Amino acid sequence: MMKKMEIKNIFPEDLKSFMSGHREKEYVLLDVRLPQEYIHEHIPGARHIPLHELEDRLNELDVDKKTVFYCRSGQRSRAGATLAMDSGLLNGEIFNLEGGISAYTDNTLPDYPKLSIFYDTGSLEDVLKKAISLEKGAHIFYQNFLDKIENEKIKKQVSKLADLEMAHAKVIYKQGRDIFDQDFDTLFAGIEYSELEGGLDARKWIKKVHGDDQNELCMYFLELALEMESMAYDMYRNLTEGDFSRDVVECFFSLSEQEKNHMRLVANIFKECLPRDIET
């Protein structure tokens, strides 16, 4: 029986001992940030494949080696590790560096709010309502980003993501239209959501942590978006194991595949923003 692959977390202090305890030919340290970020600073010995190019270049990696993914904060690299794992091309263990190069070099980033996503099942109605709640939170998350960002290219892509989250909510509603006692618009408007754990409002969080620096705002928001999309992908994949009808399971499979596409979209937006200290 084939062993199920999983992404293992590795912390900065453990990475140093990991590298000293393995020969170079036994592992790959992979930086998935933008080229300018890699040139500015990277962990010695790291290979570089930007996240938005990763899926097309996975064949450049030695599939039997252990692979450690890293980025600035650990969010892009987790998305990269997820896409690599799901490709089925890598046979070796897959690791994600918690906290990214910022933690590795002791250049601590402000704490990210923790996202809260459900994995329990319960009744079909409860599961579908919780999933719609998640999609509503994601939709509002991207709408909040639109209110704050100035770059028109980024706004266009983020607007597309906001629309896709709304479309997901409608797809989920369709699976439960025979058990819901409200039409979609009424249900969607009234359903509670918490886009960030504790109900923290994204606008207040952005203003508090990042001020008016557009590039920093972009990087932090997109990294949080990648975490959100990665967790949503994982959630829908887990829900496919639930005791649901074939149509509902197929719906969750389809949504998980689309969440991967969302990760790809977010990854491509990174090209439009860079931290101020490495702008060219």
Rank of each mutant, 00 (worst) to 15 (best):
M2G: 03
K4R: 13
K8S: 05
K8C: 00
F18I: 12
H22R: 15
E26K: 11
L34W: 03
P35E: 14
E37Y: 08
E37A: 07
E37F: 09
I39C: 04
I39L: 11
I39V: 14
G45M: 03
G45V: 02
H48N: 06
H48P: 03
I49Y: 08
L54R: 04
L54H: 03
R57S: 04
R57E: 14
L58G: 03
N59F: 10
E60W: 02
L61S: 12
L61A: 11
V63D: 06
D64V: 07
D64W: 05
F69S: 06
F69R: 07
Y70N: 03
C71K: 07
R72Y: 11
G74N: 06
Q75N: 15
Q75L: 11
R78N: 11
A79I: 05
A84E: 06
A84M: 07
M85L: 15
G88Q: 07
F95K: 02
F95Y: 15
N96T: 05
N96F: 05
L97F: 06
A103K: 13
A103Q: 09
Y104H: 05
N107H: 05
S116P: 00
F118N: 10
I132T: 09
G137V: 10
Y142Q: 02
Y142A: 00
Q143R: 13
D147H: 08
E150M: 04
E150A: 04
E152C: 00
K153V: 00
K155S: 04
V158S: 01
A162Q: 07
L164H: 08
M166Q: 05
A167G: 05
H168C: 10
A169N: 09
A169V: 09
I172S: 06
F180W: 07
D181L: 09
D183M: 07
F184T: 08
F184L: 11
D185Q: 10
D185R: 08
F188P: 09
A189I: 03
G190D: 12
I191G: 08
S194T: 13
S194F: 08
G198I: 12
L200N: 05
V209T: 15
Q214E: 15
C218G: 06
C218A: 13
L222P: 01
A225G: 05
M228N: 14
E229R: 03
E229L: 02
A232K: 02
A232E: 06
A232H: 01
Y233V: 02
Y236V: 03
T240F: 04
E241V: 01
G242H: 09
D243K: 10
D243L: 05
R246A: 14
V249R: 15
C251S: 15
F252D: 10
Q258I: 03
H262G: 06
M263R: 01
M263P: 00
L265S: 08
L265R: 03
V266D: 02
I269V: 15
R276Y: 07
R276A: 12
E279D: 03
T280Q: 05
T280N: 09
